[in-house]
Design a protein around this nucleic acid. Structure first.
Length: 205
DNA sequence: TCGACGATCATCT
DNA sequence: GATGATCGTCGAG
């Protein structure tokens, strides 16, 4: 009996913006090598699919890389950026939507020492050093393209229940690193737990 | 087949 | 604030 109970698949099968808000405060749990690593999600971004130029799905058709992005909500979408970093997303919506939520930052709640080792930093680590950014988060949890397409309702990587964050405590702003996306770059689709020190950029709002 | 370019991070000035 | 690392993916030819 675990303190981490997975959320049902239908939790993720809603609009990406709703899922992005409601993922705050939940747990991202990784089972590896007989150990359990867990983060409390404190920062997310929504990618709306076709029509959202910042999304890998903006043209509306699946490519080799984006095939899992078009599946039904509740599975992982993991890819490599800049030839260096893996980014972990939760696929949202229904099959064909191409919607997803990028998990940008988390607060370590279990397995911190192991995450520090995965990251190559000392332990204890300062806030944000382990998972204060999407590339760091994936590295801390040893997540890479092997996990692309995995069901998040139970298995190596799961999203578990936690205390949802009330709307008044959610900071909203434009997404990071999508300046190329024209009008969509300014859309307020980045969500964070206001004032949380593990967020990927210090007091961005 | 080739060229351009990232949903980033660490390190430098 | 600026820059280099580093490679899979995609669209053009």
């Amino acid at each position: 009996m675990s303190r981490f109970r997975p959320l049902p698949r239908r939790f993720h099968q809603r609009d990406a913006e709703v899922v992005a808000r409601e993922l705050l405060g939940r747990f991202l749990v990784r089972h590896v090598g007989g150990r359990r690593l867990a983060l409390r999600i404190v920062e997310t971004e929504a990618y709306l699919g076709e029509g959202d130029r910042a999304s890998h799905a903006w043209r509306g058709v699946a490519t080799r890389r984006t095939a899992t992005l078009f599946r039904a909500g509740g599975c992982a979408y993991v890819y490599l950026v800049y030839g260096l970093h893996h980014l972990f997303n939760v696929v949202a919506g229904s099959a064909g939507d191409g919607m997803a939520v990028l998990v940008r930052a988390g607060e370590p709640v279990e397995g911190g020492a192991r995450m520090a080792a995965n990251r190559g930093v000392g332990w204890p680590a300062p806030a944000g050093a382990l998972a204060g950014g999407p590339g760091k988060l994936a590295q801390a949890l040893d997540i890479d393209r092997r996990h692309d397409g995995l069901d998040l309702a139970g298995g190596e990587v799961t999203i578990a229940r936690g205390e949802p964050v009330e709307a008044a405590r959610i900071a909203v702003g434009p997404r990071i690193g999508v300046d190329y996306a024209g009008e969509a770059a300014a859309w307020p689709l980045r969500f964070a737990v206001a004032g949380n020190p593990h967020v990927s950029r210090p007091h961005p709002w």
